[in-house]
Design a protein around this nucleic acid. Structure first.
Length: 281
DNA sequence: GCCAACGTTGGC
DNA sequence: GCCAACGTTGGC
């Protein structure tokens, strides 16, 4: 599978009453407050050029203690965000970066919930969709590096015909994948839908992510286009042969990564291919 | 910090 | 369903 979206439950906010309904733990507002502050400071620490633990977590805080392990994992994961950009330029001259996000268009049940989420599902949304359920540090760090206005490919994975099927836009930068106190909602305005990590009934519930120190993040995305003809995995691999335009593409090198970087030249190349095949809608 | 055991991803 | 290629965990 893919670290995919936890899908419909969030924006649909309703239909799925069953899933959604899950009573949120009343999560002590105060704790949540501190937690999210932590989260906010962490933002600074996880920006690209600093592989280091400029970590703002107070060494004595409980959060710090609890998260030593994950910090290890985080910093281990860091370099991949920063270092490769020489060979594999992510950002275009416009300052916009490009990404690839995977989701599963076919039904599959995770913790009793169908996680199916396709480009058509995204296209039908009327509100920005929180991209949740990411439970891998490299992928998460990529999420956290996304800027408003960045463009991402939508990739269908774990399905009959895997491939890139369209594009979306990042409309809000990362916020915690957790329930946060109403008093904090403004920090993540205008969109923050309390999602999965701390909800035992959610598809990607993570008992190790404590509400007072959320491990995981989401970004909010908006549908941008669907390709007339998708670019299949097989073709991507051909374009990724040595000497070919996609030879350094992260998703081909780390095939299990559900959130990966796409360089400006890779993006442009792929969009040319799309054009030649009937464009996008 | 090493590494074996185990878990996950995702194409086929 | 299989299984390769990872990632995570925990004992030492």
């Amino acid at each position: 599978m893919v670290k995919r979206k936890a899908s419909q439950l969030d924006t649909a906010s309703d239909t799925t009453g069953l899933r959604r309904s899950t009573r949120r733990k009343p999560a002590a507002p105060d704790q949540t407050t501190e937690a999210s502050k932590d989260e906010l400071t962490e933002k600074g620490a996880t920006q690209p050029p600093q592989p280091e633990k400029t970590s703002k977590k107070l060494p004595h805080s409980k959060a710090f203690q609890d998260s030593k392990k994950s910090m290890k994992a985080e910093s281990a994961a860091q370099p991949s965000t920063a270092s490769k950009s020489e060979t594999n330029e992510t950002t275009s001259s416009s300052g916009r970066s490009y990404w690839l996000l995977k989701a599963e268009p076919e039904s599959r049940f995770e913790n009793g919930v169908d996680v199916k989420f396709s480009i058509d599902d995204l296209a039908s949304r009327t509100e920005p969709e929180p991209w949740d359920g990411i439970r891998n540090y490299v992928a998460r760090n990529n999420l956290r590096a996304m800027k408003k206005g960045d463009i991402a490919f939508f990739y269908h994975s774990n399905c009959k015909e895997p491939g890139i099927v369209g594009t979306m836009e990042i409309v809000q930068e990362h916020s915690p994948d957790c329930k946060c106190a109403p008093s904090l909602l403004h920090e993540f305005a205008p969109y923050h839908m309390p999602v999965s990590a701390h909800d035992p009934k959610a598809p990607y519930y993570d008992a190790s992510s404590k509400p007072d120190n959320p491990k995981w993040s989401v970004v909010h995305v908006k549908f941008r286009s669907k390709f007339s003809k998708q670019i299949g995995l097989k073709e991507l691999r051909e374009m990724g042969q040595p000497g070919q335009p996609l030879e350094n593409m992260q998703m081909l090198k780390q095939s299990r990564l559900s959130v990966s970087r796409v360089s400006a030249s890779e993006f442009e190349y792929l969009m040319d291919v799309v054009k030649q095949r009937g464009g996008e809608t």
